[in-house]
Every structure is written in C-alpha cells, then in structure tokens.
Design a protein around this nucleic acid. Structure first.
Lengths: 193, 193
DNA sequence: GCTTTCCGTTGACATAAGTCAAGAAAGAAA
DNA sequence: TTTCTTTCTTGACTTATGTCAACGGAAAGC
C-alpha cells in the first residue's frame, strides 16, 4: 500500500491492515508525464485521482477564451471533476500535469465496489468532500473579501510550495487576476521587504 | 416524517420506511423567527440544519467590517458551518433567518448515532457534500470568469426565487458587489428589456 | 397615523485591476 | 552553442467597480 495514500486515508478513518489492502486493490497506478492530460473538456471524467507524486491542476476555458485554474493538486491531494464523475455527463474541465506525476486512479465502478466492501470508505469520502467544501467556501469568501495583493499573500502563506512550483501566470489565474497584475504585486512586495 | 426532508434524502439514497422513521428521531424541530440567529461568530456550531420552511443565510464580517453572504438556504436546503461543526472550533460565521423558518436540527452526537444506526446516511451526506462542493466550485469559477452583470443574470436564471425573496443588498453581497453597483446593473437591464 | 429607520437610487469622483504592446529573461529544443 | 518558445516585466492608457454623499420611498415601530 502506498504510504502517501495510507496517510491520506488514515488521517480521517481508522482502517485495519486488511481493509487497507482491500482498498489498494481497487486503485489503478498511472504515470502521467509533464503536460499530459488526465481529462479534457468534452470527455467524461472516469476517475478520481490521488496524487502520489508530482503536481496536477484542473482548469476551465471560459467563453472569452480565458483559462481559469480551479485547483492545484500536489502529493497527497485528490483531483477530479466531481460533477462529470458523479453524473457521467461530459466535463467542462481540463486536468493536466504541471510536473511528471504518479497517480492512483479510482474508476466509478471500482469506487462503488470499494464502498461495498469497505464501508468505512464511505465515511472517508464524506469527510474528504466536507473538507474540500470548507476550503472552497473559504476561497469564495477570500475572493470577495480581499484585494488581489491580500489574496496573493494569503496563498503564499497557506501553500508556499504551490506558489513556488507552479508558473506565475497559473498562480495569477488561480487568484483571478492577470499575470501583469501579479507581476506588479510581487514587485511592490519585494520593494517593501 | 417531514415530507421535505424525506424528498431531500430519497433523492440521493433509497431508505425503507423503517430507516426513514429511525432517522427522523435524531432530528430536533425548531422554529426560528425572522432576524433571529441560529449561529453567531465566536460560538461553536452545534447543528447541521435542514430548512423545512422559510429562508436562512450564512455570512461573515471581514476585517474591514463588511458583510459577505456565503449561502442562502430556502426550503429543502441544508445549512451550517461545516468547519466548526466538524472540529468543535468557534465559528466565524453568522446564520440567521431572513424569513420565519422551520428547521430540523441535527446535533453532532445525534448525527454520529444516526450514521451508526442507518449507514446509508453516510452515503447521503457524502453525496450532499459532493454536490455542495460542485456548486461551490462553480461559484468560485463564476466569480473569476464573469462580470458583475453576468453573475447577476446567472443568479437570476439559476435561483430566481432567492433573488426575489432576499433583499437586494444581500444579493449584492452574495455576488461580491456593492448595493450601488447592483442597483445600476438592474437599471441597465430594465432599460434594455 | 406619525415617526424613525432601513433600503434602494442616483450623481460625481476615485481607484484597483485590465488591456495592449514591447521587450527582457529564462527554459526547452536542436 | 544557437535558436525558438514560453514566461515574466514594464509602461501607457482604459474600464469596471467602489466610495461618498444626498435623497426618496417603503417598512417597522410606537
């Protein structure tokens, strides 16, 4: 059993050795080279992906052709398009690798079987979704309450490794600002320090 | 068993008559008059609330003293501060009634007991959280992709009853704009129609 | 029914952030 | 190395939205 996955699960529910091994069997290991896609808009999202190694991100392209980063997923995080995964409808998101990644994929069918066999995992996913929701609500409120500069500083404090590993224009996209604005903010901060 | 709650649950998982009645026993009925609070910042959020009747909202007050509406919850919706509920930490949200409301409250302890007794409810809450997360992600992307006017029109299309029932300055707060800007947007739209 | 408070509207002006364009720097490819 | 992209920076200008202040009308309380 992957140590990273083990930690992610054990942090929320207590599984026995046996249950852990049972779970492991439902995942599919996959390596994803840099810039390769796990999901493209228009496709159905067949997997929930757990990141063992590397860095992924999900994003949309809006009607004006602008990209908007929804999520970064470094080691230990889960990523997918929940809507498409749940409903089987085509996705409107892209998911690709910013760094070469090692993933554990969980197909819809496999997930249902896993939940049957190891009911505690239902609780695990409930808690996972609940925590994701909490974080997402904070992001929404952050976008409404703070200026671009404040949001950047908060991101830097909360997820320094992501700011460091992802290219700057993607950080800008995540924050909902243009690369130019982020560049100016960084300059301003640097001149203060 | 309340018909509204029954529908909310049955839409996601199939419960037998008996399971439904068992669940019912864990909820606490409560009437909340208009402008009364279910939760104030600083308190621990003891309940997840299901709205049978009426209209609630949750909001924060930021460092500059500005209110930001996180959620409106009309009949059939669930509302709480997940973070505080889950961790027992003090909340930073307020939840109050915009219209006189009838609620079904689920305390933390009662919820755990319910999940023990009716394991399918674990699945229900997983799906509920997952759907909330999907909606919240869309809101985040909406805030990043659309102008104030576009966001207002989208809200109007998606939740016309909320726009109608909540005062305009709270709609503005939800959209992340000032009441003045919303007033101007509405004028502009009216002049076009 | 009168008074007070709250809410929405409007105008004038301020400002954060976006746009467009050019060039510099840094990485990737050859 | 040299070339070719991609990413980041900087400047000049535009624009959406915020701020402040005044006013009118509707609702709430007495």
């Amino acid at each position: 059993m992957s140590q990273v996955l083990f930690n992610s699960i054990q942090q929320k529910v207590q599984l026995s050795e046996i249950e852990m091994e049972q779970c492991r069997g439902f995942f599919l290991a996959k390596k994803l080279p840099k810039k390769h896609y796990l999901l493209r808009a228009g496709e159905v999202c067949a997997y929930i992906a757990f990141v063992e190694q590397g860095l992924l991100r999900s994003y949309t392209i809006d009607a004006k052709g602008n990209e908007h980063v929804l999520q970064f997923a470094p080691e230990g995080w889960w990523i997918s398009d929940n809507y498409s995964f749940l409903t089987g409808e085509p996705s409107s998101y892209f998911i690709d690798a910013l760094e070469r990644a090692e993933l554990l994929l969980l197909k819809c069918r496999a997930m249902e079987e896993m939940l049957q066999k190891v009911p505690k995992m239902e609780r695990f996913f409930r808690l996972l979704m609940q925590n994701n929701l909490i974080a997402q609500q904070r992001r929404t409120l952050g976008t409404l309450s703070f200026s671009a500069e404040e949001r950047y500083i908060r991101l830097l404090n909360q997820y320094p490794e992501i700011v460091q590993r992802a290219p700057q224009h993607l950080i800008a996209s995540y924050l909902g600002i243009t690369p130019e604005t982020l560049s100016r903010i960084r300059k301003k901060i640097a001149s203060r320090a």
